[in-house]
Amino acid sequence: MTRLVLIVLSTLLLASCASTPTVHTDADPSANFSAYRTYTWLNKPDQNGVPPLAAQRIVEYVNAQLNAKGWRETPEGDVAVVAHVATQQQQSLDTMYSGPMYGGWGWGPGWYGGMGMGSATTRVRTYTVGTLVVDLFDTKTKQAIWRGTASDTVPDDPAKGDALLRAGIAEMFEGFPPGNVPAK
């Protein structure tokens, strides 16, 4: 019995860790990504009202992904990086029903039956959905060459939020630079 409980708990724990944001990428098919090797930040997320620690993490994680692809940050890069964060309050309705309550049917001194009325309770749940958008622009042509977006529910726990942010940016740059991997 104890083993079964441990298996169920570990499965639930792994399932909760597997949650990643919804990620989409898009790229200009005419952009020659093999010509790009340097980048510069044109607009960091801290300029958009994002909390300072979250903004630092976004810059750190995007830099790590670009550096892993062989790109390096310079004051006058081939590509300009722009990051924006948007949040939106959303609501869901959860309704619980407690009925209907049926009485018994049967045979006895007389045939009888009954029915009671059930009730419904609706709870409104308000939550925040956050979206990170990272755009890359060719600094010479001033044209957009790539966009990645990651969206998910913003958790109350900063550690969970950091894990979602890290996972979303990692997935965003998984097939970067475009060419061999189709856009998601």
Rank of each mutant, 00 (worst) to 15 (best):
V82S: 06
A80G: 15
T95C: 02
H84R: 15
Y102T: 07
A68T: 07
S92I: 10
Q88Y: 11
G103K: 07
G104Q: 10
G77F: 04
A83S: 12
G103W: 06
Y97K: 03
W71L: 14
G70E: 04
Q89A: 14
R72T: 13
G99N: 02
V85F: 05
G77T: 09
A80C: 09
P100Q: 10
A83E: 03
M101F: 08
A68G: 15
Q91P: 00
Y97P: 01
Q90A: 14
T74P: 03
E73A: 06
K69F: 00
H84M: 13
Q90R: 14
V85Y: 07
T95H: 00
P75K: 10
A83H: 02
A86F: 03
M101I: 15
K69M: 02
Q65M: 00
G104M: 06
M96K: 12
Q90K: 14
H84T: 11
W71G: 04
M101R: 12
G104F: 09
V81K: 08
T95D: 00
Q90I: 11
G70K: 04
A86G: 10
D78P: 00
G70Q: 02
M96Q: 11
Q88G: 11
G103F: 10
P75M: 08
Y97L: 03
Q91H: 06
Q65D: 02
V82A: 05
V85M: 15
Q90D: 12
V85L: 14
H84S: 15
E73N: 02
V79W: 09
S92E: 13
M101G: 13
A68V: 04
Q91W: 01
E73L: 04
A80H: 14
K69N: 08
T87P: 04
A86R: 04
G99L: 01
A80F: 15
M96W: 01
A64N: 12
G70M: 01
G77C: 05
G103S: 06
G70T: 03
S92N: 09
N67A: 08
R72P: 05
Q89C: 06
D78T: 01
G70V: 03
A80Q: 15
P75F: 05
A64G: 12
G103M: 05
A86V: 05
G77D: 07
T87V: 06
Q65A: 06
Y102S: 04
S92T: 13
V85G: 04
L66C: 13
G104L: 06
A83F: 06
V85T: 13
G104C: 03
E73P: 02
T95Y: 00
R72E: 13
H84P: 02
S92P: 06
Q88D: 13
V82Y: 01
Q88V: 08
G99I: 01
V81P: 12
Q89H: 11
A80V: 09
G99F: 00
M96H: 14
E73I: 04
E76L: 11
R72V: 09
T74I: 12
P75W: 09
T87N: 05
L66F: 07
V81G: 09
A68Q: 14
E76T: 03
N67G: 01
P75Y: 11
M96R: 05
G70D: 09
E73S: 04
T95W: 00
